[in-house]
Amino acid sequence: MPLVERKDASAFEIVYDRHGGPAFSLAYRIVGDRQVAEEVTQEAFLSVWRSGARFDRARGSVRTWLLGVVRNRAIDVLRREAGRATTVSLELDTVPEQESRFEPTDAEALRREAGREVRGALGDLPEDQLKVVQLAYFGGLSHSEIADVLGMPLGTVKGRMRLAMEKMRATLAEGM
């Protein structure tokens, strides 16, 4: 990232090659449209290219930071759309693999494998916990909005979020 901050286009290329796939995939998962996902990814990477100095190594990995930028932009897009709460997918995996237009590269194959493992961990969550996590993270809904969508008390939503997070963390700690 220091090279990107110094406007080294080759370094930027490496950053994109490492993280562009997960970034595009996350954007698509949130916005559900390839063209919009492409725009979101492009905006996110350009903002990184133009303000790489905002990256704080102490606060996490480049991947985590970049995906946070992508998520924020994708959620902004969602929030601009009316009636978003009713369009948020509750499915664990809404993107069939065959939808990819391209043959997977080795790197993508590895990413897919890792993704499958994480999805396995998520799949172990009780459905009611999984829903609140997905509505919050991929749908950009607040806890009170989720309570409205699911018709449940606010305390229940927050409690389920906590239980889900604890279970996911425990799965990670088991060396998944």
Partner: peptide
């Protein structure tokens, strides 16, 4: 880490090559 694992849980797709070309040209 529970939150950080969420973005990697999504189905991984190959981004369109035009996106890379545009970004690199701009950079």
């Amino acid at each position: 880490p529970s939150v950080e694992m969420l973005p990697t849980s999504v189905e991984q797709l190959e981004p369109p090559p035009e996106l890379r070309e545009r970004l690199m040209r701009t950079a």
